[in-house]
Computed example of a mutant assay.
Amino acid sequence: MFKKYRILKWSIISFLGIVLSLFIFGWWFMNLLPSAENRTDVTITKVSDLPYLSKDVLSKRGKILAIVTSTAKMGNTDKSTGYELTELSRAYYVFQANGFEVDIASPLGGEPPVVIDDEDMGPYDFAFLNDSLAQYKAKHTIPVKDVNPALYEAVFFAGGKGAMFDFPENTSIQLIVKKMYQSNKVIGAVCHGPAALVNVTLDTGRPLLENKNVSGFTNDEELLLISDAKNIFPFLLQDELEDQGGIFNEGTMYLENISQENNLVTGQNPWSTWKLAETMITQLGYALKYREITAEENAVKVLKVYEAEGSHKAKELMKQMVSIDNKPMERILIAKHGIIAAMQGKIGKFFSLVGLTSYAKNISKDL
């Protein structure tokens, strides 16, 4: 009896020790992140606050069409969806800053559903919410059946899981893509946006995607967050792009990655939006207007070096950026990638990225 009691006693002590250790680690981990009081309130950002948009305004060069989903639910589930605001807002302002007027369309027209993830929002995204003209266009979208492709120099398909349901079979979208592509205009699509390309057949009778390098939201990215995605979506985007003859370019999960085949530019995920939109501008034949790189983009650069060359090189780059060049660094994103590693069961990588997050805090001057 006493032996059983001792075993029970030590089991309880061990359990409490584990709980206490997890609590201490969690407290330490949370302290690696910027505190709310030390973060600038970007929710009130206006276009006039952003020099990229308000200074040295370029004369108009033409128009670009952005297309977003009209789908509010994922298939037969009660899971809400829509277009990703960050993917529309960032592309919208790259196009605008570089001299293009932007129209917004959707399969049904009117006000489409939107996904706003507060954790991913930055100054440009809140500026979009505070921009009366941008909001009018976003809430009064043009039905794609009414779009005249001849009016536009390029078309951009924003992502959002809803695109998987109402982009692929839409004949008006297929016609827009085909006409613009065959007129040597620029086609761009990011994250789930490339779902618009999967059923496009050119006048040659061949699929648009055949033998072309292409990127989009990967199977691994999809299934990590939605384990039953195969049952919810009509297809997994990576599989379908490959089935259409595309040569799928798979980059690191949740990091910037784009593919370009002449006037066809595609991006893997939301973090690819800036580069994709700017690549569209250069493909149109224009030099890019200078834009200060965001703190999130700097974190992405560090994470890409980490994935390719390890923690030591990532720290070297981070020190150069933050301590020497005084560039902003969004260390929350680095911490998130640590959590992703833990979700994948990569515990060593998790602790390595926690260490990288800690290093980022130690060299930061603002926190």
Score class of each variant (00 low, 15 high):
11 S>M: 14
12 I>N: 08
13 I>Y: 15
16 L>K: 06
16 L>F: 12
17 G>K: 03
22 L>S: 10
23 F>Y: 11
25 F>N: 01
25 F>L: 01
26 G>F: 07
27 W>R: 13
30 M>Q: 11
30 M>C: 11
35 S>T: 15
36 A>D: 15
39 R>C: 11
45 T>V: 09
47 V>D: 14
48 S>L: 08
48 S>E: 15
48 S>Q: 15
49 D>L: 07
50 L>E: 02
51 P>K: 04
62 G>T: 02
63 K>S: 03
66 A>H: 07
71 T>H: 00
71 T>N: 00
75 G>K: 02
78 D>G: 13
88 L>I: 09
98 N>Q: 00
112 P>N: 04
112 P>F: 00
118 D>I: 10
122 G>A: 03
122 G>F: 02
132 S>Y: 15
136 Y>C: 04
137 K>L: 11
140 H>R: 01
145 K>P: 06
145 K>W: 04
145 K>C: 06
145 K>E: 13
150 A>D: 15
156 F>E: 01
157 F>I: 10
165 F>T: 00
168 P>S: 07
176 I>W: 01
182 Q>H: 00
183 S>P: 04
185 K>P: 01
191 C>H: 14
192 H>Y: 12
194 P>R: 09
194 P>Y: 11
195 A>W: 04
196 A>P: 06
196 A>E: 07
198 V>P: 00
200 V>E: 09
202 L>V: 10
204 T>D: 03
206 R>D: 05
207 P>M: 05
215 S>M: 02
217 F>W: 03
226 I>Y: 15
227 S>Q: 08
227 S>N: 12
230 K>F: 04
232 I>Q: 10
232 I>D: 10
235 F>E: 08
237 L>Y: 03
241 L>T: 03
244 Q>D: 08
246 G>W: 05
247 I>L: 08
248 F>R: 13
249 N>V: 08
250 E>V: 02
258 I>T: 01
259 S>A: 15
259 S>F: 02
260 Q>D: 06
263 N>G: 01
266 T>H: 12
269 N>C: 06
269 N>D: 01
270 P>D: 09
271 W>N: 13
272 S>F: 06
273 T>N: 01
273 T>V: 14
274 W>L: 13
280 M>K: 12
283 Q>T: 14
285 G>Q: 09
286 Y>N: 02
288 L>W: 08
290 Y>L: 12
293 I>F: 00
294 T>I: 12
295 A>W: 10
302 V>E: 08
303 L>K: 12
305 V>K: 07
305 V>E: 10
306 Y>D: 02
307 E>V: 05
309 E>S: 05
313 K>V: 10
317 L>R: 05
319 K>W: 05
323 S>K: 10
326 N>D: 00
327 K>M: 08
330 E>K: 12
330 E>Y: 13
331 R>A: 02
337 H>F: 02
339 I>Y: 10
346 K>S: 12
348 G>D: 05
351 F>T: 10
352 S>G: 05
360 A>C: 10
360 A>L: 08
363 I>G: 04
363 I>P: 00
365 K>N: 01
366 D>Q: 06
367 L>R: 11
